[in-house]
Structures are given as C-alpha cells and as structure tokens.
Design a protein around this nucleic acid. Structure first.
Length: 502
RNA sequence: GCCCCCAUCGUCUAGCGGCUAGGACAGCGGCUUCUCAAGCCGUUAACCGGGGUUCGAUUCCCCGUGGGGGCGCCA
C-alpha cells in the first residue's frame, strides 16, 4: 500500500466557512490517522474572484483550528513546502499546458468556440435538452462506476463532452483538480457530497490520462438548522464563518470537536474527545451518509465544556487580547464618528479608555477574568457575535469591577427591595463591615453568616441586597469573591451610597 | 425537466434481523449552592408511508413521499 496522500483544495473567493473547515478537518484527520500526508492546495484559477485577503484567511483559519499541512504554500516565506509544488494553481500553468498536450496527443481534446473540450469515447448522436433549451451532442458510453468509501457503489452516466480550457485560456476546475491530484500523487479524495455528480467527469479524465483514479469518499453536507430554513449552510448564514468563532474567542478545540461530530462518530456515546483520540478513531466506516443540520447550541455547549477546563492562563490571555482588540476597534470607530456623530464617538472613546484601564492592573484583571471563567463564560455572554453591541460582553458583565459607574438593573432592584427589610440588612452590613476579615472568601462568608445568625436570619437575606448594591444586578460570581476583589473601601462606599438611595 | 445521494426524538446520533429503540444538545420538572450559570436527579420526544423477503423487520429489496446535491467557458 502506498502512503496515504490527501489534500484540501479551497479557493480563496470568500470567507472560510464551516463546510470547508469540516472538509479540511476530515482530510487532516484521515492523514493523521493513517500517518499519511496532508496537502494544502490553493485553487485560484478564477482570477476575477480571488483575493489575497481571503487567501490569508484560509491560512489563518486553518492554523487557528490546528490543521497543519505537510505540503503546501509557505505563506511566511512566500515559498512552498513539499516536493510537488507549486501548490497554488495560479502558478501551475506549465503543468496544465503539458497535461493538455498529453490529451491532444491521445486525441482526447479538441477546440470548439475558442475553448478546449474533453472528448468522450463512443458513438455520437444529437438530442434536445429541455432544461437548457438547446440541442446538444451526446455520446453513447457505459456508466462511470465509483466505489465510494462513504456512499458505496455509485453509477452515473457521463455522456457529454465538456470544457477543460476556457476561451480566455484558463483551465477549468475539473481539469486542474484532476491534473493536480495526479501530479501530486493524491491517493484519497475526501470532499463534500456536492461533488459526487462531478466525479464521473473526473473519472473520465483520469482514464483519459491513463491514470488510476484515487479512492473517493464523499462526505455529507452541513445543512442549515431548521429555524434558518431549508438548504445547505451558506456563507451568509449566522454561525457559518470560522472567523466569527475566532473573533468571539471560542476555543478551537471545541469547534474542531463539534465539527468532527457533524457527519462522523466514534461508534459509541463519546462526544467530547481530545483531538488525539479523534485522530485515533477516525476512519471511513464512521462517516455518516446523511447530511447534518448545524446546531449552534450544541457548539456553544461544547465550547462551555472546554472553557470550564481551559487552562487559566490562556483564558486570561484571550480575554486580554479581546480587550485590546476591542479597544482598538472602539478607538477607530470614535475617530470615524468624530464629526458625524460626536456623541457616539465620545461613548466609544470612553469605552476604549475603560478597556485600557481594565487591563492595566494585571493581577486584578487576572483575578476578575478568572472568576468568570469558572462560571463557564466563554460564548455569547462573554464575547458576543454582534459588534454593534460593542459593550454587552465580558466588560458589561464585569463593569462593576472596574468602575464605580455601573448600571443599576431597575427590575432586579424593585424585586430585591420588595423582599424582607433591605434597609435594615444594609445597615447591618455597614455596621459589621469594619470588623470583617477580608482576607479570603471563606473569611467573608463566615463573617456574613455570623452576622446573619446573630440576627436570626440566613446568608441569603444579605446576599441579594449586598449584590444589588455593589454590582447593580443579580447575576455574577459569588458575593464573597466580589467583596474580596472590590476590597473593603469600595464595598463600604457602594453600600453606603446605595443605602442613601433607597 | 433529467441525473445522483440520503431518510431513527426539534437537532447531532447509537443500532448493522429478535432491543423496555440507547446517548448528547435543546425543552420541561426537581435538588443543591449566596444570585446567575454550572453540577446532580428525573422527564417529554423518534424508527416517513405502502408493498414485499423472512418464523420475525428500525435493520434487507422495490415503489411512493420527503429532504439534499448536481445538470456553467464558478470552484
């Protein structure tokens, strides 16, 4: 058995979306599973629609996901890695020319209407095509038989010559795809089911070159979730772009784990698995035949599982980076808005300044972020997808840690104030505060419990009103941690201020 | 219109002729903790329909229906 060589061949004509990522992942997994070679090949023959920016996004997204390639472009050096390059089709014109000559020499290519066509073998006849509303020439030949590793035996008739070089002189997808797979010794083609119908063309081309077709594995597509409507996931659908998850600081392991489960499973109940485990178990028999609908809630859940066990330092680093990025974004917004909407510009500038201050005290920032990490913050709550809500994120959830100007949730306020005797509880706390030990969560908890016991009450009678006073809301970390991080001075000031307002 | 693929809870799926049809997400109910989460316990929910084959079909075959994809000088 020759070593496995698989490839992922995206074209840089748009954002990198989860369908592409999943195809890349399955190829990568198969290479790693078999100890084979994973090739990245850029299919950029359509100059009109290509862009260097989208190309960069492919590299970045793949690296973020951890899908390293053994052969392919070397973007850092503008070079190539591997012996079968170049790996950008825009640089392979010579190869295509010589392969075309092979076809011409074998009498399998001819010119028509300025384009070059691939010639099928068989008896010819003309017929009217209803769909295309024109007469076409068909060729009588046997069906193409594909032994697909996922679909099983698939037969399809390929009965029309097709274009392999456009009249503008550029080769078309079917041609370059097959030529490169031959030239790069690709042994297994793993791609989306939308290519299944194309495969008959490809097999005919392999035959035309006298080459052995690779093993095909057509994997199921990722469809929209029911609430998004019918059809397959497209770049416009919410949650379709890998870039979005990166910007929202999803953990790439979580995204990869979720994606691996879309159309594949290990054959048992396991879902959350380290990538090494997935590598070990991944193989064609585990791949499903039916399409899978995308479910963002399950992805969120997977991300939460990873977040909860995420290494603390990296989590804090991510938060810091987020604050930094968001700060820059806000500053640039402020600059843009300065003349047209000065008020909004001021808000943006203020928020940016806030973020700068928040990260300035490193250990304090670290402590605050860690508190939220322990609560599984990591998805929408922490890093929202909607940039217009520029402040409804970690820093709206934590604003009271960094500023005395935190919003008071009026709904929560009226609810909390309606229960028991909040004013008395605030007075109790203010009175006990000077003597309280703030050295640890446990010490604070003990102090509040002692106070409650002395008054014939429970911890909860103090928790809600204290939380409201110092945070303005009813959600967040434990009140003891909040007290400890804020420190006695600020707690005292806020309790006092709040007491006066009620 | 033609061709190809697919079909188990709302969603991801296990099942590979005999199961009380299992798990996960979401939902619902409860417990626990100082709130919100998380966690724990419980619970609602599925074999698309019709024919065969078989002692027996979710499982194999055919038809229908439904879903998806393709039918470019896009990739």
């Amino acid at each position: 058995m020759p070593p496995v060589r698989v490839r992922f061949a995206p074209s840089p004509t748009g954002f990198f979306h989860i369908g592409s990522a999943r195809t890349a992942l399955f190829n990568w997994l198969y290479a790693r599973h078999t100890g084979g070679v994973f090739i990245l090949r850029i299919e950029d023959t359509d100059q009109a629609r290509n862009s260097e920016e989208f190309l960069r996004l492919i590299y970045d997204s793949m690296r973020w996901l951890g899908l390293d390639w053994d052969e392919g472009p070397e973007p850092a050096t503008n070079g190539q890695r591997g012996a079968h390059g170049p790996y950008r089709q825009s640089q392979r014109a010579e190869t295509y020319r010589s392969y075309l000559q092979m076809l011409r020499d074998a009498g399998r290519a001819y010119d028509k209407d300025g384009a070059v066509w691939f010639k099928l073998e068989g008896e010819r006849y003309r017929t009217f095509d209803d769909h295309r509303k024109k007469e076409v020439e068909k060729v009588k030949c046997g069906p193409v038989v594909i032994e697909d590793q996922v679909r099983g035996r698939v037969e399809r008739m390929e009965d029309e010559d097709f274009v392999i070089f456009r009249s503008d002189g550029n080769p078309v997808f079917h041609f370059v795809n097959v030529v490169d797979d031959i030239a790069m010794n690709v042994t297994h083609v793993i791609r989306g089911e939308d290519h299944l119908s194309n495969t008959s063309k490809h097999v005919r081309l392999y035959e035309g070159f006298g080459a052995q077709p690779p093993v095909f594995a057509h994997i199921p597509l990722i469809l929209k979730s029911p609430e998004m409507g019918p059809g397959k996931m497209s770049k416009r659908d919410k949650g379709a772009l890998i870039e979005e998850y990166r910007q929202r600081y999803f953990l790439p392991e979580a995204v990869v784990n979720y994606l691996s489960l879309l159309g594949w499973n290990p054959g048992d109940d396991r879902e959350k698995m380290p990538i090494k485990e997935i590598e070990k178990l991944f193989d064609f028999p585990g791949i499903n035949q039916s399409n899978a609908k995308f479910d963002s809630r399950k992805l969120d859940h997977m991300n939460m599982l990873y977040t909860l066990e995420e290494d603390r330092d990296r989590y804090v680093e991510n938060a810091r980076e987020f604050a930094d990025e968001r700060g820059k974004f806000l500053e640039s917004q402020a600059k843009k808005l300065a003349e047209s909407h000065p008020e909004n510009a001021n808000i943006a500038r203020g928020n940016a300044a806030f973020l700068r201050e928040a990260v300035a005290d490193e250990s304090y920032f670290r402590n605050v972020v860690s508190l939220f990490r322990a609560k599984g913050f990591g998805t929408e709550a922490l890093f929202p997808s909607d940039p217009s809500k520029s402040f409804s994120d970690l820093f709206s959830a934590t604003v009271y840690f960094f500023s005395d100007e935190y919003p008071m949730n009026q709904e929560v306020k009226s609810k909390v104030l309606a229960k028991g005797d909040p004013k008395a509880r605030l007075d109790d706390l203010l009175q006990a505060l000077p003597g309280m030990d703030f050295s640890s969560d446990l010490a604070i908890e003990t102090a509040i419990k002692d106070l409650a016991t002395a008054k014939g009450l429970g911890f909860g009678d103090y928790q809600a009103v204290a939380r409201l006073a110092v945070t303005g809301t009813n959600a967040g970390p434990s009140i003891t941690s909040i007290f400890r991080l804020l420190g006695k001075v600020r707690v005292d000031r806020r309790l006092r201020q709040f007491r006066e307002s009620v």
